[in-house]
């Protein structure tokens, strides 16, 4: 009797699933580190990493060791955390806004980040990739501020917040276009476009360190509020009737998702589709209750993003496809399968 009530209809055992997907993640990261224009054997990859961690002292070519450690591993780990963070943000926003189409950029964060980045690239405010990241981050938060203001501190209900997000996105997109068209040259426009479509090209260890703080912290906050998120199933008023402080939870979670998304976008650009598709995929497997859904989304997002990064590097030789293009190309067919299989049984 006990177990029949304690487990939900989705009978997949969570621990098994978690272990399985952690293994998948490890394999994906190892593969991402081995594969590239210059393929390195898996054994060398493992040894390079253990060397750097001071666990082994194997004789390796310094170049290979450096490619593995300085370029590829940091990139793969950033991809994993970025995927996890975007998927988590999407899950939260879909629950809070009760909208299946909600994704991390629904609050205008990506449009704001673009404006910030474009200001840095085109207007030449500041210099270097740090300035770019900082500009993107500031822009993202400015956009979130506009949304918060327009939706009255996000207290006015889901559809209002979505409309405010749309308005902020439009505002910042047109600002971006304005800046690009009035003062950009062809080269700059190309840079901006490339940045907007997303790239892991520039990421290094400091990016990883920042995400290693922000994403797990975000996951922890979301898990802590996971039960409260479940209570939003039948709407805000119903959540309040179940004792959930609706306004406070909403503002905390909006801020957490804006924070994660802004940090991620400022590093890798506005990579779409992960935050929209992954929560649906995860929900399809573990069901809609958040204590299971949140960790599942995070890990599926991580695997998905690392895989997309691998694809982006190998699909055309000697060239890297923008990551946002790959997530959409891989994501759409995958999504189609879920939509088809999850259709209501008529």
């Amino acid at each position: 009797m006990m177990s029949s009530v304690a487990s939900t209809s989705q009978g997949v055992r969570l621990p098994l699933l978690m272990v399985g997907s952690l293994v998948a993640l490890a394999v994906a990261i190892a593969t991402a580190t081995a594969i590239g224009d210059y393929t390195i054997g898996l054994g060398t990859v493992v040894l390079s990493i253990t060397n750097e961690l001071g666990l082994t002292g194997a004789e390796l070519s310094p170049i290979e060791q450096s490619v593995v450690w300085d370029l590829r591993l940091s990139r793969a780990l950033v991809a994993a955390l970025a995927g996890a963070g975007l998927a988590l943000s999407g899950t939260i926003l879909q629950a809070l806004l009760r909208n299946a189409l909600a994704e991390p950029f629904v609050l205008g964060v990506s449009a704001g980040a673009s404006t910030g980045a474009v200001c840095v690239i085109v207007l030449g405010i500041g210099a270097g990739s740090n300035a770019l990241s900082f500009g993107a981050f500031a822009g993202a938060f400015a956009a979130f501020g506009v949304v918060a203001l327009l939706s009255n501190g996000a207290t006015t209900g889901p559809s209002h917040t979505i409309l405010a997000g749309v308005a902020a996105s439009q505002l910042f997109s047109s600002l971006t276009s304005y800046i690009v068209t009035t003062s950009g040259n062809a080269e700059q426009v190309r840079n901006v476009m490339f940045w907007l479509l997303g790239s892991f090209g520039g990421v290094r260890w400091p990016d990883f360190q920042l995400l290693l703080i922000i994403v797990p912290l975000g996951l922890a906050v979301c898990m802590y509020l996971g039960r409260a998120l479940d209570a939003f199933t039948f709407g805000d008023e119903d959540a309040a009737a179940l004792g959930v402080p609706v306004g406070r939870i909403r503002i905390v979670l909006f801020a957490v998702t804006a924070m994660m998304t802004a940090a991620i976008v400022s590093m890798i650009g506005a990579v779409g589709f992960v935050g929209l598709v992954v929560p649906h995929a995860a929900r399809y497997v573990v069901g809609p209750m958040h204590m299971r859904l949140l960790p599942a989304s995070a890990i599926v997002g991580a695997v998905f993003m690392v895989t997309a990064d691998i694809v982006s590097r190998v699909i055309v030789s000697q060239q890297t496809i923008p990551i946002g293009v790959v997530t959409a190309l891989v994501g759409v067919p995958f999504f189609a399968v879920i939509l088809y299989r999850a259709r209501p049984q008529a």
Partner: peptide, 12 residues
């Protein structure tokens, strides 16, 4: 009360 989420009776 209405929802779009596919919850079970038990979940609710």
């Amino acid at each position: 009360a209405a929802t779009e989420t596919s919850v079970t009776v038990l979940d609710v």
